[in-house]
Design a protein around this nucleic acid. Structure first.
Lengths: 146, 146
DNA sequence: TTAAAAATAAGAATGATTATTATTATTGAT
DNA sequence: ATCAATAATAATAATCATTCTTATTTTTAA
């Protein structure tokens, strides 16, 4: 029987904050979220508890975006889409085929699929004329499409 | 006509170092590689030139492993396997199906597939008795399998 | 040749994360 | 409840990869 571990109030609040959002937040975001309710929490505590929860399998890392690690309360592996403009991370409703490559001697125990691109919000915000040129691919070199 | 840009000696050396290895190195690894041949190169120059080459599409980032960004001279997208013990990155000979999920409004222009696990070398180095127990799954909780 | 532009080294600055340490809260047995 | 062991914590210092700044050198092109 898996012995369920006790969580402190702060750890509960941290877990809850990550579970209640869909933004796949960073440690600092969680800190700023929890701080008003538990004013004497520190950023170090957030980092430490995130680490504990990860070791217990209660949280997962989604990856590093703009030099910040981002976390997910949904630990079941699933793909994500990351916006290269604003750094937002979106869940992808899509099950990648489970076929495994042959990796002689390498024991796979996890896979991660990430789609990079531009989210709806960011491509909407793009200046009209630039969008038009980009569609023609003329300025792609100059302004970049990724 | 794509105007090929001039590269300085140092940039050439940096590019070459990354292209000649299969280790998907970090900036510091490149620096230590190039330093003996060009002793007055600095780490900042390596970072700067890697950035330039990335913007030109001559290099790709593989991701962040142990807080270090790792690079690849092979810019054609392909999956990687990352060892969670030693951080080594191995090319995967496997073409993930090209089927795209529907991501309303999100314009995908790149995807990345990463397999996490333990490389042959690391699982070979593992102490025999621990390996045996792990096969039985008994100490998996305690020692972790990922 | 010469003036503008690009590349550079050295080192300072940044910023996320981790480690340290002293203090406080929690637990469990008596 | 009492007391000792243990865990959790805040504050802050330390770490370390990466970026920025600035003064200097090199390259370019006219």
């Amino acid at each position: 029987m898996a012995k369920t571990r006790n969580h402190s109030k702060k750890r509960e609040a941290i877990l809850e904050a990550i579970r209640l959002t869909e933004t796949h937040p960073s440690a600092r975001w969680v800190y700023e979220q929890v701080k008003p309710k538990l004013p004497d929490i520190s950023l170090g505590t957030v980092y430490r508890n995130i680490k504990v929860c990860r070791e217990e399998g209660l949280l997962a890392s989604v990856g590093v975006v703009n030099n910040e690690e981002r976390f997910d309360g949904v630990v079941e592996p699933h793909p994500h889409a990351i916006c290269t403009k604003c750094g937002s991370i979106i869940d992808v409703k899509y099950t990648p085929p489970t076929s495994q490559p042959s990796l002689s001697g390498f024991a796979v125990d996890n896979r991660r699929t990430v789609f990079y691109g531009v989210c709806a919000k960011c491509s909407g915000q793009e200046k009209g004329w630039l969008k038009k040129f980009k569609r023609f691919g003329r300025l792609a070199k100059r302004f970049g499409n990724s």
